[in-house]
Computed example of a mutant assay.
Amino acid sequence: MASPTMRVIFDTDIGTDVDDALALAVLLGSPEVDLAGCTTVYGDTLLRARLAKRLAKLGGRAALPVIPGAVKTLTDRNVWWAGHEGKLFPDLDTERVDPGDAVAYLVDRVTSAPGEVDVVAVGPLTNIAHAITAAPSFARDVRHLWIMGGRFDDPEPEHNLKSDPEAAAVVFASGAPITVTGLEITTTVRMDAGDVSAIAGAGPLGEALKAEIEQWWRFWNEEWNCPHDPITVLTMVAPDLFTFSPEGRVSVGPDGSSTFEPGDGRTRVTTSAPPLQVAQEIVRRIAAAAA
Rank of each mutant, 00 (worst) to 15 (best):
S3W: 13
S3A: 14
P4H: 08
T5P: 01
T5G: 14
T5V: 12
M6R: 15
A21I: 05
L27D: 11
S30G: 11
V33C: 07
C38T: 15
L46P: 03
L47R: 15
R48H: 08
A52I: 07
G59I: 04
L64P: 10
L64Y: 06
P68L: 00
P68F: 02
P68D: 05
G69V: 03
A70R: 11
D76H: 12
R77G: 08
N78T: 15
N78S: 14
W80M: 13
H84Y: 13
E85C: 01
K87Y: 03
L88E: 11
L92M: 08
A102L: 02
V103D: 07
V107E: 09
V107M: 09
T111P: 10
G115W: 08
V122E: 04
P124W: 00
P124N: 12
P124V: 04
L125S: 03
A131W: 00
A135R: 14
V142D: 12
V142K: 08
R143G: 05
I147M: 04
I147L: 12
G150L: 04
R151V: 10
F152M: 05
P157I: 00
P157D: 01
E158M: 00
N160Q: 15
L161S: 13
D164M: 06
E166A: 13
A169S: 13
V170M: 06
G175H: 07
I185S: 04
T187R: 14
T187P: 02
R190Y: 07
M191I: 15
A198D: 13
G203P: 02
P204S: 11
L209I: 11
W217N: 10
W217T: 11
W220T: 12
P230C: 02
P230M: 00
V233E: 07
L234K: 08
V237E: 01
A238S: 13
P239N: 09
S245H: 10
E247S: 14
E247L: 12
R249P: 03
V250D: 11
P254M: 06
G256S: 06
G256K: 04
G256Q: 04
S257Q: 09
T259Y: 01
T259L: 08
T259D: 11
E261R: 13
P262D: 12
R266I: 00
T267S: 05
T267I: 04
T270C: 15
A273D: 08
A279F: 04
Q280K: 14
Q280F: 03
E281W: 01
E281T: 15
V283K: 01
V283Y: 05
A291G: 15
